[in-house]
């Protein structure tokens, strides 16, 4: 009995370790101005090289652990954002990058803007900035992983 419990614990720790040391990310632009998007792209280029932390930006939401959202959510993009979130396997995390994704920024009150990302899907970490520097984005991802590690992401 005791052995089984121990084994389960070990398994959980192993899973958390694995998941926080090589999370894959998918990026979705829900109506942003592109500023945050090019900064996210810049984080994977040689100068910042996000892959140092095992983070890989890849295409499919089905292989992703982190959803990186940019921009205020427009009416047209709302459905897609929801669908992408649903397609991601659990455990999943959402990183809202940029002021627009957190509050709508300058686009608050525009007729085609639904608003902030957390009005549509739950968000785990916010990175303010317009756009945040690539360093700030890396900082956000590291903080997110730290949090995930502390809470444990076995399931």
């Amino acid at each position: 009995m005791r052995l089984e419990e121990l084994w389960e614990q070990l398994e959980a720790r192993l899973a958390t370790w694995g998941r926080t040391h090589s999370p894959w990310a998918v990026h979705f632009n829900s109506g942003s101005c592109n500023g945050c998007d090019i900064e996210i792209l810049a984080t994977i280029t040689p100068r910042y090289d996000l892959e140092r932390f095992g983070v890989k930006i890849q295409g499919s939401p089905r292989h992703a652990d982190i959803l990186v959202c940019t921009g205020p959510v427009t009416r047209q993009a709302r459905e897609r954002l929801l669908r992408i979130y649903e397609q991601m396997p659990s455990p999943k995390f959402v990183l809202a990058v940029g002021t627009c994704a957190i509050s709508g920024g300058v686009f608050q009150g525009c007729y085609n803007v639904v608003g902030r990302v957390d009005a549509v899907i739950p968000v785990d970490m916010y990175v303010p900035g317009c756009p945040p520097r690539p360093e700030a984005i890396i900082d956000g991802i590291l903080k997110l992983l730290e949090k995930a590690q502390a809470e444990g992401v076995a399931t």
Binding site: Q108, Y126, G129, R133, D139
Partner: peptide
């Protein structure tokens, strides 16, 4: 909500406002 445009800094005639150049790692859960 801030877009970090510094228009407020520009507008203040008494120099009350400043944008910090060290405090930019603002990510929070």
């Amino acid at each position: 909500r801030c877009t970090f445009c510094a228009q407020c800094v520009e507008n203040c005639r008494f120099g009350c406002l400043q944008m910090s150049n060290t405090d930019w790692e603002l990510a929070a859960a």
